[in-house]
Structure formats: structure tokens, C-alpha cells
Design a protein around this nucleic acid. Structure first.
Lengths: 213, 213
DNA sequence: CGATAAATTGAGTTATGTCAACGGAAGTGG
DNA sequence: CCACTTCCGTTGACATAACTCAATTTATCG
């Protein structure tokens, strides 16, 4: 999606058990049975998911360079993180979150900002999954992606229809059909995973309920 | 639900713009156009919701004494918090979250714990709303409520069917029907807002997919 | 006690899920 | 480099869980 994107140096330097990790395409982050981990993406893209025992999956989000993800220690392994392309990230131990007060203001502010952002996204996601239809979900998803890719209107989706479905609470077929619908009305131009947003204003109108909350 | 419940003294004492607020039944928390607010519930119960311009509502959660809620400053007022019974809470300014490092370890740890808890709940909610059916949603909701009420099997719901529906991404009718279903199979005994959980094990089996993630 | 709101129930609708078939892309092995 | 396989995306036909609308009963509150 944005492999070449540059990021500023990590706010969580050495001295806190930081460690650089490189993942190949489709590779999973290793489990951390002993403690939680906070990851900071340098390049590439990651998707995090939770999977129930009967195989249902929900993808919490797709994360891009500069963004954080938190993976909690779990007895039953239900939380996963997977690279969507060759990806590099910095792993820090959960101790980062345990004793925030030991940090300098900048690091602390970074983490707090991240948390508030996470909180805001969680609210939006609740409304999205609980109170909106397939068109609104996909429209919002695409707009959000566009924004996070610095406003680029043309990009390559790194995730499959099934991935998008598992993120938006839909099936892959419904995602396909909704893409077709958006294309038919000239909101987007889709070709497999190549996507161009033709009418961001129109899309925003479709996603209005989600965008305005 | 638990009006009489006792709580430990607030971790956010004076000196940080703390302020005690009392709300009557059904009363809303006043808007804070200038900054975010962090609230700590002393007694009573609160529900937080976001409402889109076209009137759709999603209730983020029902909060009990000892729990925190965060209300963000918003230009367009879309976030609301409402008392479900006479309620008292302590309001602190968002500055609390801005400069965590200025705090003592205990306060910092309290907030961090709340962070992590919120994050965990957000993940579960995603799966709940995106990947589970009405029965699973209601079963999980009731079990969660039971746990937060110190394991009591018998309690009074302070929220309407519509409220529960807006929380679980369902309509009030579906909530009613699902209650009827759970009662018919002897999982619960419902009478209006009076609820007794007869078979927590059975309920947990129904909610297994959600519980085990 | 009457007025109003909430809960329940039924009938009918609909958005989305399920299942299945097909075509094409991408990856694999000879 | 080509056959082979597998996966992914698309499309259609059909099923169904949940929604909508409406009528009725039951609570709640002044």
C-alpha cells in the first residue's frame, strides 16, 4: 500500500528492551506468551485479528508505518498480527505501558495520543459495525484508507476481499458486490486490488453518518 | 443496578481541576466544548452513546461505580453520556491524560490499567458486533453484566430494550425476542427489567465464541 | 386513576449470508 | 517455459436472521 513511505525515528529508543523485527509477506508476528508487546511500524503494513475457537475472525485494523499496535499476552491464543507485505517494526515490552511515569514528556505524550486515537477509532468502529450498512462501511473504510495514505486517490489494496469483509463485519461476496455497486455509480474504479477513488465527496456523502460522529 | 455499591476513594484527587457532579435519573452530562473530560463514577450508572446526524445511535457502554469514562470535546456534538439512575461522579480535565508523567505511580498505573481494559473491550466489541448473532450478543452482555456486579445472579436492568439494542447493534424487538428465547430455554428468568440468571454455564456456552477470544 | 411510555407479539420485508459455479491470476513443479 | 494447481474474485440463485411496521398488552409516572 505504501511500502516506500518514510517515518520519523521511533519515540521508544533503546533501554526499554526495544527490538527490531522484520517480517516477510504474510508472515505472522510470533506469540508472546509471557507478556504484552507494543509494536511500532517502520515500513510495510500489518493487520491484527482475533479468531474465535469456531474459526470466525474479526480484523481489528490495518496498520501503516508510524502507527502502533498492541498485542496482549494470552493464554488461549486468539489475537494475531500478520504482515500484508514485507514489513519492519520495533517491538517494545509491555513495561512501557506499566510505568508511564518513568518516561519523558515526549514519549508519554506520544503514547497518550496513540491511546486517545485508539479510543476514538473504537467508538467509530462500534457505530460502523452496529449501526451502518455495507455501503456505508465500505465507503468509510476507503476514505479512511485514503486519508492515512496522505490523500492519495490511487492505491493498491494489500488485503483480500475476505480480509476487508472480516474487518467490516461482512462476507467477501458482499464486499465484492458493494465494490461493484460503488464502481457502477462512479465513486471508485476497481480492478482486483487496484483501486482508484474517483469521487471522494460522493463517498463521504455515502459515509456521512459514520464520518460525522 | 447497584446504587448502593461502595467504592474506594478516587485516585484523582484535588489539584487537577477535579469536580464532583451529581446527576438525576436520565440526566445528561453537560457538554464540554472547550476540552476533553475524564470521569470517574462514584455511584449510580452511566451510559455513553454516539448519535449520527440522521438519528442512529450506538451505545458504547454501560458504566458502573469505580469505572472511568472519557468524553471528548467535539465541535459537532455527537457523543453523549446519560445517567441511568441518580449518579455521582468526579470530573477531571483532559490535562490528566496530556501529561501523565507528572503523576505519581499509583495514579499512572490506574489510568494505564483503564487504558488496557478499554482496549480489550474494544476488541471484544468488534467481534461481537461484526461476527456474532443476536443470541450470542445478549448472552455475552448478560454474563458481562453479572461479572461486573460481583457475580450477582439477580439484578434490575436500568436500561430499556432499545438501549440494550443500541448497544448490541440490534433493534428493541430483537432484544425482546431473544430474551423470550433465553427464558423459554431456562437460561434466564425475565420480567420486564428484572432479570435472574438461572444458567450461567449454559449462557457461557451460548456466548462461547465471544468469551473465548 | 388516567396518560404516556415501554415491552411484547405477529406478519411481512429486506439486506446480507450461504452455497455453488466459473474464470482468471498467481504460484509451483517438472 | 509450460502444465498444473490453488487461491481469489465475481456472479447468480436461494435462504434466513434480523428489521420494519402495526396492534396489543403491560408497566410507569404524575
Amino acid at each position: 500500500m505504501n511500502r516506500g513511505r518514510k517515518v520519523v525515528p521511533p519515540p521508544l529508543g533503546n533501554g526499554f528492551n526495544s527490538k527490531l523485527i522484520m517480517l516477510k509477506d504474510r508472515q505472522e508476528l510470533p506469540a508472546r506468551p509471557e507478556s504484552d508487546g507494543l509494536y511500532w511500524i517502520l515500513s510495510g503494513a500489518i493487520q491484527t485479528s482475533i479468531i474465535s475457537e469456531d474459526g470466525r475472525r474479526w480484523i481489528g485494523g490495518f496498520y501503516l508505518p508510524g502507527e502502533f499496535i498492541l498485542l496482549e499476552r494470552d493464554e488461549v491464543r486468539s489475537q494475531f498480527a500478520q504482515a500484508l507485505c514485507p514489513t519492519s517494526l520495533i517491538m517494545t515490552d509491555r513495561s512501557v505501558l506499566e510505568g508511564l511515569s518513568q518516561f519523558d514528556h515526549f514519549t508519554c505524550a506520544t503514547i497518550t495520543t496513540w491511546f486517545l486515537r485508539t479510543y476514538r477509532i473504537a467508538l467509530r468502529t462500534g457505530f460502523l459495525l452496529g449501526r451502518s450498512n455495507a455501503t456505508e462501511r465500505l465507503a468509510f473504510f476507503l476514505l479512511d484508507l485514503m486519508q492515512r495514505l496522505e490523500g492519495r486517490h490511487h492505491f493498491h489494496l494489500l488485503m483480500s476481499r475476505a480480509d476487508i469483509g472480516d474487518h467490516l463485519g461482512l462476507t467477501s461476496e458482499t464486499v465484492t458486490r458493494t465494490f461493484t455497486l460503488l464502481q457502477r455509480h462512479n465513486y471508485v474504479q476497481v480492478n482486483g486490488r487496484n483501486l482508484e477513488i474517483l469521487d471522494p465527496i460522493g463517498l463521504a456523502r455515502l459515509a456521512a453518518a459514520v464520518v460525522t460522529i
